[in-house]
Simulated assay, not measured.
Amino acid sequence: MGEPNADELIRTTLDRRTEELRATLAADLETAWKHGVEAGKAEGFAEGEFRGRKQGVIRVAMNCLRAGLDTAVVAKAAELPEPIIKKLAQDNGIEIA
């Protein structure tokens, strides 16, 4: 009669331990998911900010070129190499002297 009780105790203990492991795994997965989402948002915001700044610099450089400023002045103001400013002007049909 002692055997069925031992089997039941083992089964109950294993079931409890399995449930504890499942709960721990679920909590770990939830935490990892939240960290991943936050990291993804931070990366996305950083990328968006970088692109926005880049577009802003290009827009101002284009406006300066259209206003007739010298490419060297525009390059210095935009903190870009002069060949890039010249290429920007060329690609947008802005004639430079």
Score class of each variant (00 low, 15 high):
H35A: 09
T18C: 05
I10R: 14
V37Y: 06
M1V: 06
L14Q: 06
D7H: 08
K34Q: 13
H35M: 08
L25S: 15
E8Y: 11
E19N: 03
G44P: 01
V37W: 03
T18R: 14
E8V: 11
A42T: 10
T24V: 14
G36A: 13
N5R: 14
A26I: 06
A42W: 02
A39T: 04
E19W: 02
V37F: 03
T13R: 15
T24S: 13
T13E: 11
V37T: 10
E19T: 02
T13H: 14
L21D: 05
G40R: 03
A23L: 14
E20R: 06
D7N: 08
A26N: 09
E30S: 13
H35L: 13
P4C: 05
W33Q: 11
D28P: 01
T31F: 04
E19Q: 03
T12N: 13
T12H: 13
F45C: 00
G36S: 13
E8M: 13
D7A: 08
K34S: 07
P4R: 05
L14G: 00
T18G: 04
L29E: 14
A32M: 10
A39D: 11
R16E: 14
G36H: 03
L9A: 14
E3I: 10
G40Y: 06
V37K: 07
L21W: 02
E20L: 14
R22T: 07
E30Q: 12
L21K: 03
G40A: 10
N5W: 05
L14T: 02
T12Q: 15
A27P: 01
K41I: 15
P4G: 03
T18P: 00
G44F: 02
A32T: 09
P4M: 05
D15R: 15
E8N: 13
A6W: 04
H35C: 00
P4W: 03
E43H: 09
K41Y: 12
M1F: 11
L14M: 13
E38P: 01
E38F: 02
R17T: 13
